[in-house]
């Protein structure tokens, strides 16, 4: 997935001279996860460069550049570090079009590795997507595989508005179903690991059905897509697993059609439960599908604690927790 993300930036930097890439360690070194490796050598250091360690500076400068007419695609080294830049995202990038009546706009992508499962403790594991979906004017994207990552990132860079692009870091090197002890599967062994050369895009705001099923609709994104697939296989629940891909704008149509068919719904995310994006999904499903529901909607999520270090796998909502919720929902 790292190569797919790099490829998306490479393709767009090639196609559009206004695309610039910067952040901490992204220039000469190519980023701590190597997502920008080679871009500086190829496009020069005024189009791909290192910045001071200052997230409000990175996003704030990018807002100014976007207002000028560039298309910055910046990296925040970990989603856990985005908070100093949050004011620039929320008060500035998200509202510039609206408050200036499109006199100035902000075509900006803020990329950030998100999620846990890498022994990162509380400062390298968070999933703060709900802090962005709550903000008017932002789009929030979470890819779950290399094909989507490239196509969605290209769409994000081309989008005329600011896009938060959250990369589940546990998926960088292969699909991960929540079993840390199992041998890692590389993307080369996965059908969605195949990434076409050159330009293509995956539209923002469209979900994908990863497994068709009749008994239960599962809403998931990022790493949790694979956890949900594993849980369905283990429990034998005939789940329809929807990979949301874009959280905002949300593909409510696909969700609604599926829940009307199955009559049951479970939501899985890695972020903490309370006021998480699952709460919004739960409310929307209730509002749109209440008379089709045969059981209460279940949420499986991270516990409402900071992300722990030693207890990572007790915190991480893996297939066991997801599977229990699936069974409870279909048996209710």
């Amino acid at each position: 997935m790292v190569e797919a993300i790099r490829d998306a930036m490479d393709v767009m930097m090639e196609r559009d001279e206004n695309v610039v890439v910067f952040g901490e360690d992204v220039g000469y070194f190519g980023g701590v996860f190597r997502c920008t490796q080679g871009l500086q050598a190829k496009f020069g250091k005024t189009r791909c460069f290192d910045t001071p360690i200052n997230e409000s500076g990175i996003v704030g400068a990018a807002v100014g550049m976007a207002a000028y007419g560039l298309r910055p695609c910046v990296e925040i080294q970990f989603a856990d570090y985005v908070y100093p830049g949050y004011d620039q995202i929320v008060s500035e990038a998200a509202r510039l079009r609206y408050r200036s009546n499109a006199d100035f706009t902000c075509p900006l992508v803020v990329r950030m590795p998100t999620g846990g499962g890498i022994s990162g403790g509380q400062t390298h594991s968070q999933s703060p997507e709900a802090l962005f979906t709550h903000v008017s004017g932002l789009k929030t994207v979470v890819p779950s595989n290399p094909y989507d990552a490239k196509g969605l990132l290209i769409a994000a860079i081309e989008d005329p508005d600011p896009v938060i692009f959250m990369e589940p870091k546990r998926l960088y090197n292969g699909p991960f179903d929540g079993y840390p002890g199992k041998p890692a599967v590389p993307w080369s062994k996965h059908e969605l690991g195949e990434v076409p050369d050159g330009y293509y895009s995956v539209p923002l705001g469209k979900a994908a059905i990863r497994r068709e099923g009749a008994a239960l609709t599962v809403l998931a994104y990022g790493t949790m897509v694979y956890v949900a697939l594993a849980a369905a296989a283990e429990t034998g629940v005939d789940a329809e697993i929807i990979d949301l891909r874009t959280l905002l704008p949300l593909d409510l149509e696909t969700i609604e059609a599926s829940v009307r068919k199955t009559g049951r719904c479970a939501i899985v995310h890695e972020a903490t439960l309370t006021s998480g994006f699952g709460a919004e999904l739960c409310a929307l499903v209730q509002e749109t599908c209440f008379y089709h529901l045969e059981a209460p909607i279940k949420r499986v999520a991270g516990w409402d604690t900071p992300y722990p270090h030693a207890q990572e796998w007790d915190y991480f909502p893996g297939p066991a927790r997801a599977g229990r919720a699936f069974l409870e929902t279909v048996e209710a």
Binding site: T46, Q88, E92
Partner: peptide, 24 residues
Amino acid sequence: FSISGNLATQYIQAVGWAMASAIK
């Protein structure tokens, strides 16, 4: 440039705009 009303945010944006001009 569009005034935000939040304080100081525009200062780094000015620097970014100037950097963009130099990049181009």
